[in-house]
Amino acid sequence: MKIRTGGPQDVAAVLRMFDSAVAWLSAQGRTGQWGSEPFTGDPKRTAQVEGWAESDGMRIAEIDGSPAGCVTVGPPNAYVPAAPVPELYVQALVIDQAFAGHKVGRALLDWSLEEAVRRGAQVLRVDCYAGDDERLVGYYESCGFTREAPFAVGQWPGMILQRSLSALR
């Protein structure tokens, strides 16, 4: 697996990653996280991915030259209060379901941890969907994150999680 800097040339591939994740979640009846409609063709979603692609925080994981996952890091998302200490925030993490089971998400989170240390952050934070059975919260906990605080955006339940970087210095 190779992790490289992402950019505008990756927008279509990242939208396809989200499409595969939405289709996978929908097939399980789990539409609360991202809905049931593809991201491709949605102007709002496209603009969001284009914004990430223009930042210096987008990374693409590739397996055998194919885009397998994407992470974007930077300041916290607008609906989340900033941490009281220097932080780096995982703004988005998505995996193409064709590469499920290849530990792409963990590799991208490991890169995020290393990047947070390089940037002098004290914590790496992320938020995720906390509805249904909280499986996604459990995934982040299995990656070493701890629950910080629940929140909601309208009816969408979320959880902020953090990982202290003190042991990594």
Rank of each mutant, 00 (worst) to 15 (best):
A98R: 15
W111N: 02
R118V: 06
G101D: 01
E114K: 14
L108Q: 09
G105Y: 03
I95S: 13
G120N: 07
D127S: 14
Q91L: 10
L113S: 14
G101W: 04
L113K: 15
Q122L: 07
Q91W: 02
W111H: 13
A100L: 12
L124H: 08
H102K: 12
G105T: 03
C128G: 12
Q97D: 07
S112M: 09
L88R: 09
V117S: 01
R106Y: 09
L124V: 08
E87D: 14
Q91D: 11
D110V: 12
A98P: 06
A107K: 11
F99N: 04
R119N: 10
D96E: 03
W111M: 01
R125W: 03
V104G: 07
R118E: 14
A100T: 15
F99M: 02
A107C: 05
R125M: 13
V94E: 03
L124T: 02
L93T: 09
Y89Q: 00
R119I: 03
D110I: 07
A121R: 10
V126K: 03
D110Y: 09
V94W: 03
G101A: 05
Q122P: 00
E114W: 11
R119T: 09
R118F: 03
G120T: 08
Y89E: 00
R118W: 04
S112E: 06
Q122E: 15
R119G: 11
E114A: 15
L93D: 05
A92M: 13
Q122A: 14
V126R: 05
R125K: 11
A92Y: 12
V90G: 10
V94S: 05
A121K: 09
I95G: 14
L88H: 00
P86V: 01
A116V: 09
